[in-house]
Write a protein that binds this DNA or RNA. Structure first.
Lengths: 335, 335
DNA sequence: TTTTGTTCCGAAAACCTTTGCATTAATTTT
DNA sequence: AAAATTAATGCAAAGGTTTTCGGAACAAAA
């Protein structure tokens, strides 16, 4: 790589010291107008760009935030990334992405990389596999601000931004009941994830509120498209299959719809479905999927704003905030 | 932020000089075994992590690659990002993402950010708006390796990785013809993009090869879902609407399908459709979309491998390579 | 003439690490 | 015993920038 032009080059060409050039470049009043102009002119001519790495070193600040997600190509996460990049850009920060691919080991390694890159703050949505959080604790021990989003952990000294899973689920299930469903199945996320617990709780409470007994045989653990197709197929073959389905995310809802179509089950006639996410596919399929919008873009923005606030605040001794993103039920064709 | 532990801290605690500690940490044979062990033990205890920024400065190498895409939440791009991150991770590089949001001005600014971050190399898919490439030339003038992917420009001293648009289009259209289509419309990308030109050419050549005259009234400029719905609606209302459609990407194909469904046009009965991308949605919709797989993950990997090769090669005086990713027609239900 | 103020600029330290070149002490060779 | 070698460690510079603390030159005031 070609050597970039430095302040020293300018100083030598002009016969000034580096200190003078540095000050001239920032319009320091100690430097005469004439000198300032000469310096700035030459700097422009030579295409001088301050070396941010030198500044990083000097100020031990990188203007970089680290982002760790399970997978970038999941629509919800890419939407969040969009929001994150947006706010970072507005505030002159850069963002480094790492993905765990849902692997705990890779996540730990990624955190080490983040640490050695000396990022100013970290945004994390952890892997499904992750049960031990000491790698995140390491970030915190270094007093690097950390914000969890979507998949959160409230035990650490870190802010969190998450979907209001409980209410989202509660409303979705209530809506199914209002539409006449009596036997409502739920495709549920793993229960070690807070979001899994909260959505299940919302589901239960909605049933209870409407006087429908909870039946644990209607709870299925299922959170991918493929799983959903397989599980749905076996469910729909029974004669007493459910008349309503609340799915943990749009992909599982869509999997169920595909299985239903293959088995000649009509939606919303025989079965009503609500998803969770409001993904692109949810408005493309037929009938269009009734779903709970999670506002990923908003989530990304809020998480980043919170993180920047922590980065720019002078103390690490704060009380973590726990932001919940309100959801919205999008009524479409599957109910 | 808390001060991180440095080599100097270790040196002081142990009464050695920093040089000794530095060498001990890397098992330099000059240092006695006893010293090495003592140093490494304390380093571990204190949680010492080499300060990469200091190294960056010293070696003027950051082990970071810059990535500039139009939008992260587009499925195709997020798939590519996945491939990029994969290869970067394997080679101990980090990746910084920037998005232009299809805005030329923002792209220029992003390139400046990339430059001041002193990334070792850059991966770019430029905005639709972009006509002037001098900001990329600036990267090249600094002898920073640059690889264009998907939306490429072959006029610069940069490698490119792109979809084999011509053949992809040629086969897709040939396939439609074999399935009996005679009046095949094309939803085409902007013609200042190479991929737009190549796909149109593939379309034309396929028609010609099969003795079907080219009719420019069947060429529509359209590359978003919303556009596709609007345009399709007006097209399908005519009585001589096409019997085949080759769409520039899956979203436009899906838009056309939605419009067709609303107007009671049956697919594949009255109209056969082929998309381009093999997105998630394409296998979810009904009927499932016949489409051309672009292998985004592969593209991301290939582009990154090529970039790393350039970064690690000692000269900037190379002949750019132009890789084409083979496509594959996925036969599904819309033909 | 001496003091006091200005104005404009430079030297050097600091940020953290690596590395070529000493330096010291101990050991071996002549 | 003197000379040469070896082992273990330290010094200092370099990488680019900012910033504190002066310093020099000159003008104005006492």
């Amino acid at each position: 790589m070609k050597k970039q032009v430095t302040i020293k080059d300018i100083a030598e060409k002009l016969g000034f010291s580096v200190s003078t050039v540095s000050r001239a470049l920032k319009d320091h009043p100690d430097i005469s107008i004439k000198t300032r102009e000469a310096v700035k002119e030459l700097a422009k001519l030579l295409g001088y760009k301050p070396n941010r790495i030198a500044l990083n070193l000097k100020n031990s600040k990188t203007y970089t935030i680290g982002l760790l997600v399970p997978e970038t190509q999941h629509y919800f996460f890419s939407t969040i990334i969009n929001g994150i990049e947006e706010v970072a850009y507005e505030n002159n920060y850069s963002v480094m992405v790492f993905q765990s691919n849902e692997k705990y080991m890779r996540e730990v390694l990624n955190i080490q990389a983040l640490l050695s890159n000396r990022v100013d703050g970290v945004l994390v949505s952890f892997a499904k596999e992750t049960r031990d959080f000491s790698h995140f604790q390491q970030i915190i021990d270094n007093e690097i601000p950390l914000v969890f989003f979507d998949r959160i952990n409230r035990e650490l000294h870190a802010d969190t931004v998450s979907v209001d899973d409980y209410n989202g689920a509660f409303h979705a299930v209530s809506y199914l009941i209002e539409k006449g469903c009596q036997r409502i199945a739920i495709y549920s996320a793993p229960q070690h994830l807070l979001l899994g617990q909260n959505r299940l709780k919302g589901y239960k409470d909605a049933l209870e509120k409407h006087g429908i007994p909870f039946n644990k045989d209607l709870v299925y653990s299922c959170d991918t498209y493929q799983d959903a197709i397989k599980i749905s197929r076996s469910i729909f073959k029974k004669k007493d299959f459910p008349d309503g389905l609340f799915a943990v995310n749009d992909m599982t809802a869509l999997g169920a719809m595909k299985a239903a179509r293959n088995l000649g089950i009509s939606i919303p006639g025989d079965l009503k479905v609500v998803g969770f996410e409001n993904s692109l596919s949810s408005s493309i399929c037929d009938p269009e999927l009734t779903t709970v919008d999670q506002f990923g873009f908003e989530m990304g923005k809020k998480a980043t704003k919170l993180l920047l606030k922590r980065i720019e605040q002078d103390t690490f001794d704060f009380t973590p905030e726990h932001i919940k993103i309100k959801t919205r039920l999008i009524e479409r064709g599957t109910c």
